[in-house]
Design a binder for these strands. Structure first.
Length: 261
DNA sequence: ATGGTTGGTAGCCAA
């Protein structure tokens, strides 16, 4: 099963790119972030015509996440399922069950950006990470194939930025942010891309400004994290960076994993 | 060099 994640920065502005990439890459499941759409305006019809079931958790103007799947999506939850609620639409999870294959529980997560540091936005980011860690700890006890995919808005390591020194004052690279990510990973998750390639220079985001793409001034902030049961099934992982060179691109590109049945 | 670009929305806010 091929599972991808992509922050598309507006589903309405990106629908042609999305459909084009779906035809080329043909993923089984796609975790979308920053759809910037309410549920009613999400283009479920054209995505259904393209062969995908849809589960959406949207809001007006900002944020918003969705799951697309060639297989049925069951047991859908919107928002982090810890009962605490959230004014911002940042998490959706469902069980994807192929007819003739093992099921995978898959989340599409859009972590808070957290900038600027020293404000309530950064506090919200750290609180959100803490909630995710607590929920993940409890959920890993189920010993299922679990895939936590999304835009983490976290640069885990200096290797994950072309110019790490320019990110020192940024919420994406703060010691508290990286510490929260390390605690999450220490629960026993596997970073799928790093499991197959530990080289520098692997990025998923290039800013629109100052010619970042042309200079390859990128960062790696979109991650696919696997439970031990899912990691046992890991075949391959990759980043579709060619999508960043298309007309009207998102500032993020798709990241994907292939899991054996 | 504290810049500049995009999306959603209707003035700026978020990234």
């Amino acid at each position: 099963m091929r599972i991808a994640t992509w922050n598309i920065n507006g589903v309405k502005a990106r629908i042609d790119n999305l459909l084009h990439w779906l035809r080329e890459a043909s993923p089984d499941v796609v975790c979308l972030q920053e759809i910037k759409s309410v549920d009613e305006a999400f283009p479920a019809d054209v995505l259904s015509d393209a062969g995908y079931n849809v589960a959406v958790h949207g809001q007006k103007g900002f944020n918003g996440v969705a799951l697309l799947s060639k297989h049925p999506i069951e047991d859908v939850s919107r928002g982090l399922p810890d009962g605490d609620g959230d004014e911002q639409a940042r998490f959706i999870i469902g069980l994807v069950a192929p007819k003739d294959g093992a099921a995978v529980r898959i989340a599409s997560a859009y972590m808070p950006n957290g900038n600027p540091i020293g404000t309530e936005k950064f506090t919200y980011k750290l609180a959100w990470m803490k909630r995710l860690e607590a929920w993940t700890r409890a959920t890993l006890a189920e010993e299922e194939s679990l895939v936590l995919a999304g835009d983490y808005n976290i640069i885990p390591d200096p290797l994950d930025a072309k110019n790490p020194e320019v990110w020192t004052g940024d919420a994406l690279f703060q010691p508290e942010t990286r510490g929260a990510y390390r605690r999450l990973m220490a629960l026993g998750l596997t970073d799928a891309v790093r499991a197959v390639d530990d080289n520098a220079g692997i990025y998923t985001f290039w800013d629109y400004q100052a010619g970042a793409w042309q200079k390859n001034n990128g960062i790696r902030i979109d991650h696919i994290l696997l439970s031990p049961e899912a990691a046992d099934r890991l075949v391959e992982a990759g980043i579709d960076r060619y999508v960043r060179a298309w007309e009207k691109p998102s500032d993020h590109v798709p990241v994907w994993v292939e899991l054996r049945e």
